[in-house]
Amino acid sequence: MTSIRIRSKLIDGKTQLRILITHPMEHGRNRDKLTNELIPAHFIQELTISRNQKPLINCVMAAGISKDPYFSFMLKGGAVGDSITIAWLDNFGNRDIAEHTVS
């Protein structure tokens, strides 16, 4: 199952994008409640958003972003059938990619 959920809406000729990603976003200073050991830092570092294969937004982030990150953007223009691609990469080298069609 994908970790990325995407909602889009065409508003006045613009495309509103809302993105919810499932990710722990651990900053490495929390301790496990049972073992009292430090939980290793584990967070998304890069996020890219493309429309019809054209990169529009690049984000770099660290664990200062909340668990299960949520983002929203407003793209200029847009039409029904646009393909939105969202990809993330975390500090463990894990990545995920999701496609969405504007409807």
Partner: peptide, 16 residues
């Protein structure tokens, strides 16, 4: 916390 690099095709409005 985060840096959003926006292309000219994106409105200068972001939420997180």
């Amino acid at each position: 916390a985060i840096r959003f690099e926006l292309s000219p095709d994106v409105e200068a409005t972001v939420s997180a």
